[in-house]
């Protein structure tokens, strides 16, 4: 039940929420019985059905698999989708700033990175975002505990307690975090943003909380027909992300640091 509506969600989440509210009311009992009785527990069921009513738990660990072979050169669909979804496109360059500096000061959650092997010359493209480590250095160093790992594995910032010391940015090996350098006038309700705090990719936590197991970047990549990013529950062997990871070898960036990242890459 859960996976079908998931795809619809990608097209029109609003419509889905209305439908799901009704559908869940009607069929929740049936699905529950099926999951427990016939298939045993599968995580996707309670993750992708309805808005969350129970606090997140460590039954899930959200993560991604990126197949760099499918990541197309010059395509920025994931970046654009993230910008739209999380209001990053609403950032305005302050008057009197200079363009080059601004590009390093504006918040970025996901980047397209293009690499070339020094020996073979082989070119690889990949999206780079917060790697949602199991042992995140940013969480270790945060003096107030504002940088935290949610029970379901999402690393994020509680901006209510962030004092803007930027130590997490020093600690992150992936340059995943951004500091908000300027006054923010326009923002989306689902993506609060304010001067003086640090933020980064939160795996579209608001979508998960609404009951939709998807991220803007993965959806956009799929909509382009590339399917380079697969999102899902790393703890569920039947999830799309685990299935994809089972098919080919994948690596973590900076594997030497043993952070056990939630984002894995094939072909790097």
């Amino acid at each position: 039940m859960s996976r079908e509506p998931d795809r619809q969600v990608n097209q029109d989440r609003r419509r889905f929420m209305g439908a799901a509210a009704g559908a869940v009311a009607g069929s929740a009992g049936g699905v529950g019985a099926l999951a427990v009785g016939a298939l045993g527990y599968t995580a996707a069921d309670d993750a992708a059905a309805a808005p969350r009513t129970e606090p997140v738990s460590d039954r899930h660990r959200w993560g991604m698999f990126v197949d760099t072979a499918k990541c197309a050169e010059g395509c920025t669909a994931c970046v654009d989708a993230c910008d739209q979804e999380n209001g990053l496109n609403l950032q305005a360059e302050p008057h009197g700033s200079n363009e080059a500096k601004w590009q390093n000061q504006r918040a970025v959650w996901i980047r397209k990175v293009k690499l070339q092997d020094k020996t073979s010359g082989h070119v690889t493209n990949l999206p780079l975002m917060c790697q949602h480590c199991e042992h995140p250095p940013c969480v270790d160093v945060c003096p107030t505990g504002a940088s935290f790992k949610r029970a379901d594995g999402i690393v994020m910032v509680d901006r209510h307690t962030c004092i803007g010391c930027r130590y997490c940015m020093m600690a992150c090996p992936y340059k995943a975090r951004s500091f908000i350098h300027e006054q923010v006038d326009q923002k989306l309700t689902r993506a609060p943003r304010g001067m003086g705090c640090v933020e980064s990719c939160n795996l579209c936590a608001h979508r998960l909380d609404e009951g939709s197991a998807s991220t803007a970047c993965a959806d956009a990549c799929a909509a382009e027909g590339h399917h380079a990013i697969v999102f899902g529950d790393l703890k569920d062997p039947t999830s799309a992300v685990r299935q994809a990871m089972a098919k080919q070898p994948s690596r973590q960036i900076r594997e030497d640091l043993e952070l056990n990242t939630g984002v894995r890459y094939a072909g790097i």
């Binding site: 363009e99 980047r111 990175v113 293009k114």
Partner: peptide, 25 residues
């Protein structure tokens, strides 16, 4: 620059002007 991809040259890192794989000004 943060060394994320050993043995690889970073040709592009985010939007033009965004810094990675090169010395940050």
């Amino acid at each position: 620059p943060l060394e994320m991809f050993p043995g690889k040259t970073v040709l592009a890192f985010g939007a033009p002007g965004d810094v990675g794989g090169a010395v940050a000004p």
